[in-house]
Design a protein around this nucleic acid. Structure first.
Lengths: 178, 178
DNA sequence: ACTCAACATGTTTGTTCTTACATGTCTATT
DNA sequence: AATAGACATGTAAGAACAAACATGTTGAGT
């Protein structure tokens, strides 16, 4: 249940409405923690009910701007410091790789080519963001520094996956009856 | 919904009971696609109802050994070849990294040390499996070759994360008001 | 004045996954 | 013969997540 803390964390940076947060989630976290708006809105309602966030008066088109409360800040820091990291990975591409032996060589080649391209593109994308940050395009707040660290992880992970997909092409299939 | 195809894939390798599959899932897929036994049992029931797998007569302690049917094999290959890969990643550790700016330097150091150790250990573990496979400990079937490829991905991902956690320590926190 | 696109916020329904509960069997040891 | 521990299979309740449905507002352009 990290969506909860993801929202708290974003609100710790700056206040925002459900719509804002949906976009910020999509932009900054899209690849590492996808969340759709229905889930975000209902989580915000629950967070507000628990007093971890609060909304000021409604703005135009009943927009509610939420900000984090002291209790929310405490909870967020508790999560960061005291709660065990969840190291679960659920990677469809790796699951599939276990079953590569069921694919025809040309199917596998096509698959790995496509995967490698996808990952390399993602890596390039994040490399671009990292460079922009390093040039100072986003300023140099504590928040942007943290984001720079996250981006670095994305770059490294996607590069690792791209390298892997290329490497996998060099592994010959087992010969029948050695 | 890849658990479904994970099970089909394992059964394509060799038949097994719910209990077997729970253990095989845990062993071979534990890090990349965790699944608990209640989910596995119910998915097996559903797969059997759809005719993608079938159970022979019950063994001791009403153990049912399932094997994949032709229809199941067709479905598995359809998934492998025709269904878009789901590139979703949901990585709690990366989510947290976005909020590193809320942690005290010594808390962050402790966190990153622990993370780096964790990932490096995992990488070593899988490196060991890879070496065992390369020595021929597991034979050289198409299945084990595919598993070797999956293991390589795990090694590379965990190494990448370990490197990242170490690298992150070298990033100084932003000075207040530059 | 009209209309379209983007803004903004929800509810409903169904699936997936986790946690806790519940039960029964076989084997080896005492 | 009793029993403990590993084997083996399930159900129930609830949380998390996704997809589809539904509604209303504002601003910009015509």
């Amino acid at each position: 249940m990290s969506l909860r803390h993801g929202l708290l964390g974003l609100l710790a940076g700056e206040p925002g409405s459900g719509y804002d947060l949906t976009r910020r989630f999509e932009e900054t976290l899209g690849s590492i923690w996808p969340a759709k708006h229905p889930q975000i809105y209902s989580e915000l309602t629950r967070l507000a009910a628990e007093g971890l966030i609060e909304a000021e008066a409604e703005g135009p088109r009943r927009r509610k701007e939420y900000r984090i409360t002291d209790a929310g800040m405490t909870e967020l820091r508790r999560w960061l410091v005291d709660v065990e990291v969840d190291h679960t990975m659920r990677l469809d591409p790796l699951l599939r790789s276990l079953f590569f032996w069921l694919m025809e060589p040309q199917e596998l080649k096509a698959h790995l080519d496509k995967e490698a391209r996808f990952y390399r593109e993602k890596a390039e994308l994040y490399r671009g963001s990292a460079a922009a940050k390093d040039r100072g395009d986003f300023g140099d707040s504590p928040q942007t520094r943290a984001m720079r660290v996250t981006i670095e992880a994305a770059v490294r992970l996607y590069d690792a996956l791209a390298d892997w997909a290329e490497w996998a092409q060099t592994v010959p299939p087992a010969k029948p009856k050695p």
